[in-house]
């Protein structure tokens, strides 16, 4: 554990808390992509099956349980409790265009051809692109509420901080995992355009609005 890794995890935690609070307080999930949230739930389910086979630490277990539980809680709020506020007309990204290539890639490019390892690899590749339906939704509607922007910023920062963590680990432990690193870089790059808008607009008190 190093400071970048901890900051990354805290940023991830914060993103989820912001999202759940936004939905709960406003009693609405307007502007949030249910498809991205489904992909995140699938990501954590596939990755954290090792909860039962691989004990790392109490921290690790608590975080994994939190990520799985909150991803399903988000889906419950969006598709059941506050379904009437879900903006499904704008949430139209075709997820099969992500799931199919990600599945094939996980079967071909992995560390070991075993059930758990392929599920882990699948989750790493899927997480990298899971935010695309959400970013597509923002570009389709041309805007995002400030709270949604803060959520996206915290979520994007998480993988960026993990990249610093991987650089740190490479120099201090000679540890590196190419699959995680490459997917993590792709994931972070997808946020670059959003980061730019966040710094130039949202932080100056303006709403995130794309040019028409």
């Amino acid at each position: 554990m190093n400071v970048f890794r901890l900051a990354g995890d805290m940023s991830h935690l914060l993103a989820i808390i912001i999202l759940l609070l936004k939905i709960w307080k406003t009693r609405s999930c307007a502007g949030i992509s249910g498809r991205s949230q489904l992909l995140f739930a699938l990501t954590y389910t596939a990755r954290y099956l090792d909860l039962v086979t691989n004990w790392v630490s109490l921290y690790n277990t608590v975080m994994k349980v939190f990520f799985i539980a909150t991803s399903y809680a988000t889906i419950y709020l969006m598709y059941l409790k506050f379904k009437a506020t879900y903006d499904s007309n704008h949430d139209t990204f075709r997820v099969e265009f992500l799931l199919l290539p990600v599945t094939i890639l996980a079967l071909v490019l992995n560390h070991e051809f075993s059930f758990m390892e392929i599920l882990w690899t699948f989750s790493i590749y899927l997480e990298a692109v899971a935010i695309l339906p959400q970013l597509f939704m923002v570009s389709k509607t041309g805007e995002a509420e400030s709270i949604t922007s803060h959520y996206l910023f915290a979520l994007g920062s998480y993988r960026l901080l993990y990249i610093f963590n991987w650089i740190w680990r490479y120099y201090t432990e000679e540890y590196y995992d190419l699959i995680a690193i490459i997917a993590g870089v792709v994931q972070t790059v997808l946020y670059c355009d959003f980061f730019y808008l966040y710094f130039t607009k949202v932080l100056k008190g303006k709403k995130l609005q794309l040019p028409a």
Partner: peptide, 10 residues
């Protein structure tokens, strides 16, 4: 498998 990379990250 001991050679499998240890998954200590989240």
């Amino acid at each position: 498998d001991d050679d499998a990379p240890k998954k200590d990250e989240l």
